[in-house]
Design a protein around this nucleic acid. Structure first.
Lengths: 135, 135
DNA sequence: TATTGTTATACTCTATAACTATA
DNA sequence: TATAGTTATAGAGTATAACAATA
């Protein structure tokens, strides 16, 4: 099995598992990604679009749906009245935490590897990602 | 940077690059995946749905759009008149080949690694994917 | 004038359910 | 009866263009 094909397999599996984890919380993949993003740090609508690499107009609907479920709220930005800060509610933060815990990919397949092997893998992946040697 | 985060980064990058490669040929991601699949081997509509992990009814529209662009055609199955085999046209095969060649991910980041490192990486990824030692 | 978020619109992908034609 | 593909429908994500409020 070729390296590129292996990477493709892992990408597909990771993606599927993320979608499934989202589905368990009655979220779509996009909604789960936005919620996960906001649970790290609230941010303006436009910043979310940049992170998701999509047009800002799409974020309106995604936040609408998360807001209607009580997982996210829109707050005014005291420094710029044009800006709306999207932030998770308490329930949103709890959902985001359970979402993280439900990502089996982290545990199961990687647990096949020993500690040393994981360090080797991490080093190789860092090279691929283009990380500097730090960390 | 943690291992899981690294995998997530690579997954996102791979995904983006695939979408971009598809876009360069005026294809959506789903259309490109189906075309790539069929360029390996023509198959019944239902089999495509299984490969893409979606409902068969969706495949009708995707094949419709590929067919209207002359990239794919529907052929009867001589063994079962219910079945329609989706197969790439000559132009479809050419497009699929150019699509494969345009996937920079294969070349650029992996080329950072030496031959030995790539073998080590392949071995580790095989373990993660759960491949038997064969190949 | 430029920017932020929104609205309106259209297209694609998706699941569900009902349908046709075969088996 | 069961299966393969289709159609109809609805919801979600996406891009584009135009808009109101604010900078």
């Amino acid at each position: 099995m070729e390296l590129v094909e292996l990477v493709g397999t892992i990408v597909a599996r990771y993606h599927d598992e993320y979608e499934q984890a989202a589905f368990r919380h009655a979220l779509t993949g996009a909604q789960a990604r936005v919620l996960a993003l906001l649970s790290v740090k609230p941010m303006p609508m436009r910043r979310i679009a940049q992170k998701l690499k999509c047009e800002p107009s799409n974020i309106t609907g995604i936040i609408d749906r998360l807001e209607s479920r009580g997982l996210v709220e829109r707050r005014p930005d005291p420094d710029d009245r044009r800006v709306k800060l999207a932030a998770p509610t308490e329930e949103g933060n709890r959902t985001a935490a359970r979402l993280r815990d439900g990502l089996d990919f982290a545990r199961e397949p990687l647990s096949e590897l020993s500690r040393e092997e994981r360090l080797v893998l991490r080093g190789l992946l860092r090279r691929i990602v283009g990380e500097p040697a730090a960390g």
